[in-house]
Amino acid sequence: MKLKLYVAGTRAASTLELVQRIQRAIADVVKQDPASELEIVSIMDNPTAALEDEVVATPTLVRSSPLPRRSAFAFSSDATELILSLRMDPIDQLARK
């Protein structure tokens, strides 16, 4: 699974803390998928990528692979729940409800 975390900047304490929480959650949740990658993208440096991924607000976590691309706002969310929800396809999520 390839993930991109879009942030406003990379130096704010809350962003550093969010990155750590997401990295921990990835390590916990996707042990069976060691090829998982997390890329941190600053919208300040790369607004074009944000537009291409249809990011509306920071922080947003995008699953770019496997397709379909999925994304979720990551502000103050439970990181493990966030990763789990992005791993599932929408049809699986419906089945869970």
């Binding site: 919208i43 379909p68 706002f73 502000f75 103050s76």
Partner: peptide, 28 residues
Amino acid sequence: ILSKPVGAQQLLEVATTVLEGSIFHACN
């Protein structure tokens, strides 16, 4: 940062995410 222009639904989703810790998805 919030992208401009922004729609009503997106504003509500951002506010709910920030204020309640909810998770909102987009599927492209």
